[in-house]
């Protein structure tokens, strides 16, 4: 009741915390944006002039489209493979193998514990035969493992939040087989989890550098590789690349969110139509 009648002002330290957080998060991004259009920015607080020259050079860079395409292919393929592996596994563990869940939870932290360089070198050593050796396929396999926790967590939480057992049995008693239950009942009900997992994986893989450079290198050059190359040539162009990379990641995120929310708006509309 009190909260309703009296306006509650945030304490000073709350404002400070939030302010510091925003500053901490936004400054690097904003400076990258500014740097990508700055003519000269070492003698003054604000740049001395602005230009789109660096973007022109970025877009004109040889390999621009190839690396962009490679990055998109790599990220999307990883999202797909990850979904195909994680969703049935998590569903299976939740319905049939409850005891394996703690084990899976721990397994899914492992990729965080292994240094990427070690992972890359180990994979290159073990899979040193054709057609896998140093191929994009090996790279996809590697980034799937590397980004797996990002898919696993949201999917596992989403499945946990619904009554998988009962929904599965209800579906089966109505004549649906396991695939129909998964496709028509379980997946539509965990869609938000699948989307956030896909977003995290996409963004992570789109910016992945270490594995790519160590496993395939120049054979399958991705956008981050090109970006790092340019940091050695021209910082401003590298900044422009970063901005382009952000923008693409954002656009794809929005696209995924939009696709995902379509199902839900249809629901709302059908309720309102009543």
């Amino acid at each position: 009741m009190r909260a309703l009648n009296k306006k509650v002002y945030p304490a000073g330290w709350q404002v400070a915390t939030v302010g510091f957080f925003l500053f901490y998060m936004l400054v690097p991004i904003i400076s990258t944006y500014v740097f990508s259009v700055a003519t000269r920015w070492d003698r003054t607080i604000l740049p001395e002039g602005y230009t789109l020259e660096f973007y022109k050079r970025a877009f004109e860079a040889s390999y621009f489209t190839t690396t962009l395409r490679n990055s998109l292919v790599l990220s999307l393929a990883t999202v797909l493979v990850s979904l195909l592996i994680i969703v049935p596994t998590v569903y299976w563990v939740h319905t049939r193998l409850g005891r394996a869940k703690p084990l899976l939870d721990i397994l899914m932290i492992l990729p965080f514990g292994i240094p990427t360089v070690v992972l890359a070198l180990a994979l290159v050593q073990v899979y040193n035969f054709a057609p896998l050796a140093r191929s994009p396929f090996l790279l996809i396999g590697a980034v799937v493992v590397y980004s797996m926790p990002f898919m696993y967590r949201p999917v596992s939480n989403a499945i946990q939040a619904i009554d998988v057992h009962v929904l599965t049995e209800a579906g089966q008693s109505l004549g649906a087989n396991v695939f129909q239950v998964l496709a028509k009942i379980i997946i539509p009900n965990i869609l938000p989890g699948l989307l956030s997992g896909s977003l995290l994986v996409f963004a992570t893989v789109f910016a992945e550098y270490t594995l790519t450079s160590l496993i395939v290198g120049a054979r399958f050059k991705t956008f981050p590789l090109l970006l790092v190359e340019f940091t050695r040539i021209n910082g401003n162009v590298a900044a422009a690349f970063s901005v382009i990379s952000f923008t693409i990641a954002w656009l794809v995120s929005l696209l995924i969110l939009w696709v995902g929310s379509k199902g839900q708006t249809e629901k709302v509309e059908s309720i309102q139509a009543r």
């Binding site: 619904i162 209800a170 579906g171 008693s173 004549g175 087989n177 009900n189």
Partner: peptide, 22 residues
């Protein structure tokens, strides 16, 4: 016979309606 081919209907204590469907 697997449950989905038994032709046996079931009603659960927790209703078990599919939340994503009308």
């Amino acid at each position: 016979v697997p449950p989905n081919r038994r032709d046996i209907g079931m009603v659960f204590q927790a209703y078990a309606l599919f939340p994503n469907m009308t």
